[in-house]
Every structure is written in C-alpha cells, then in structure tokens.
Amino acid sequence: MKYVVELSEPEKKTLQQLSRKHPHQDFRTRGLALLLLDSGRRVHETALELEVSDKSVYNWIHAWHDNGLCGLLVGHKGGRPRSLSEAMIATAIEAASAELMTLRQIAQRVEEVHEVPFPCRLETLSVALKRNRFSYKRGRYSLKKSATPRSSP
C-alpha cells in the first residue's frame, strides 16, 4: 500500500530543520523519513535507508496526518535515566552556593543530606551543576612564600 505525503514549502523547511538540528536522533529520523516520502520514495525504501521497521514509518505518517508536527514530537523515551535526582542536584547547588567546596565535598554533603551513597562520578555532578547554570570553579591552593628567601648552593 502506498501512502502519499505531500508537504508544503513551510512544512518542508520545518522538517529539514528538524532533521538536521533536533537534539534527539529519533526526532531527526522522523523528519527525514517524511522528507524522503515527500520526494516520492516508498515506505519500504525509506525504512531500509533509515534502518527502521516499515511499521515505524507508517506510524510516523499517521502521526503526521493526525497531529502534524506535534504528532512527530511526542514519544521520546530514549536514553538512560539520570543518576542524580532533581532533589540531589538542588542540594548540591545549595551546598556549593553556601561555601567554597570541592566536588568531592559537595558529593559528601549530598550523601549526608539524602542518606544514600553518591550514585555517580564527580564529573557527572560537575555536568549537572553546569546544566543548571551554576558556574563552578575548583578551589586552588595559593603558593605559600616563605619569609626567608632560599639560598642558592
């Protein structure tokens, strides 16, 4: 069975932007599939090229016909769940804002408050802080100069 997808110029431009710049791969694939179908490709050819099942392409066509762009942009369930909960991130931001701390000290504070072992690496905590627009700089030790200069041998 051949499904016809006819797109207007604004729809084509929107789907081209979606297929190039959306942060989730599955949404980029959906936009590209509709563009391929609009250019005259068959469903089976499109599915083979995008390495998805025919059923997925049919589902995208139905979603497009029923709800337009909004139909394509629902259902992203990919990716691993975040290891730090929102409450843990809030605790980390609060602790880091209160005083100068290293990442390890912030992680220990989160462990104390939530009474669970810290669930991820310190780099993950750093990324979570940056994602929440918290500018984190590690504390640096200043060079201590001795009162008496060293004598050269």
Results as ranks from 00 to 15, higher is better:
Lys12Gln: 05
Glu86Asn: 13
Ser83Asp: 14
Lys145Met: 08
Gln108Ile: 03
Val110Cys: 01
Gln16Glu: 14
Arg121Met: 10
His76Gly: 04
Leu84Ser: 04
Val110Gly: 01
Ser56Asn: 13
Trp64Leu: 04
Ser97Glu: 07
Leu100His: 07
Leu103Glu: 03
Arg131Ser: 11
Arg82Pro: 13
Met101Ala: 03
Asp66Lys: 15
Ala90Gly: 11
Pro119Leu: 08
Ser8Ala: 06
Asn67Thr: 15
Tyr141Val: 00
Val43Met: 12
Val116Leu: 15
Ala87Met: 09
Pro10Met: 07
Tyr3Val: 06
Leu35Pro: 11
Ser19Trp: 13
Lys145Trp: 07
Met1Thr: 00
Lys13Ser: 02
Tyr141Gln: 06
Thr102Arg: 08
Leu15Tyr: 03
Pro81Asn: 10
Leu125Trp: 05
Gln105Asn: 06
Gln25Tyr: 14
Glu94Arg: 06
Gln17Lys: 14
Arg133Met: 09
Gly31Asn: 07
Pro23Thr: 05
Leu48Tyr: 10
Trp60Met: 01
Leu100Val: 00
Leu48Lys: 12
Asp26Tyr: 08
Ala98Gly: 03
Leu37Asp: 02
Val5Gly: 03
Leu100Gly: 02
Ser142Gln: 02
Pro23His: 07
Arg41Met: 13
Pro81Ser: 15
Gly79Ile: 04
Leu7Tyr: 04
Ser126Gly: 04
Trp64Asn: 05
Lys77Trp: 07
Ala96Leu: 04
Val110Arg: 03
Leu32Ala: 08
Asn132Gln: 15
Arg150Ala: 09
Ser39Phe: 08
His114Ser: 13
Arg80Thr: 03
Ile93Leu: 09
Ser85Lys: 04
Val4Trp: 09
Thr124Leu: 11
Leu84Asn: 00
Glu94Phe: 00
Gly79His: 04
Leu73Glu: 10
Leu37Ile: 01
Ser53Gln: 12
Ser56Arg: 13
Asn59Pro: 03
Phe27Ser: 07
Tyr136Asp: 12
Val5Ala: 05
Thr91Lys: 02
Gln108Pro: 00
Asp26Leu: 15
Val113Thr: 08
Leu72Trp: 04
Arg131Trp: 07
Val116Gln: 15
Ala87Pro: 00
His24Phe: 15
Ile89Arg: 03
Cys70Phe: 13
Pro81Thr: 11
Tyr3Cys: 10
Asp54His: 12
Ala33Asp: 11
Arg104Trp: 06
Arg150His: 10
Pro153Ala: 15
Leu34Gln: 06
His114Cys: 07
Ser85Glu: 08
Val57His: 05
Gln16Gly: 03
Leu103Ser: 01
Ser19Ile: 07
Tyr3Phe: 09
Leu15Val: 00
Thr91Asn: 08
Arg109Ala: 10
Asp54Ala: 11
Glu6Gln: 04
Thr46Gln: 06
Arg121Lys: 08
Ser53Pro: 10
Ala147Asp: 09
Leu100Ile: 01
Gly78Val: 06
Leu35Phe: 10
Lys144Phe: 00
His65Ala: 04
Tyr141Gly: 00
Val43Trp: 12
Gln108Cys: 10
Ala33Leu: 05
Pro149Trp: 14
Leu50His: 09
Pro81Phe: 13
Asp54Trp: 15
Val52His: 09
Glu9Phe: 04
Met88Ala: 12
Tyr141Asn: 07
Gly31Val: 00
Lys21Gly: 11
Ala98Ile: 00
Val52Cys: 09
Gly71Val: 06
Val4His: 12
Arg104Asp: 13
His114Lys: 13
Ser85Ala: 08
Thr124Trp: 09
Ala96Cys: 06
Ser142Ile: 00
Ala63Phe: 02
Val110Tyr: 01
Arg138Cys: 01
Leu32Tyr: 05
Leu100Asp: 02
Phe118Ala: 00
Glu115Phe: 07
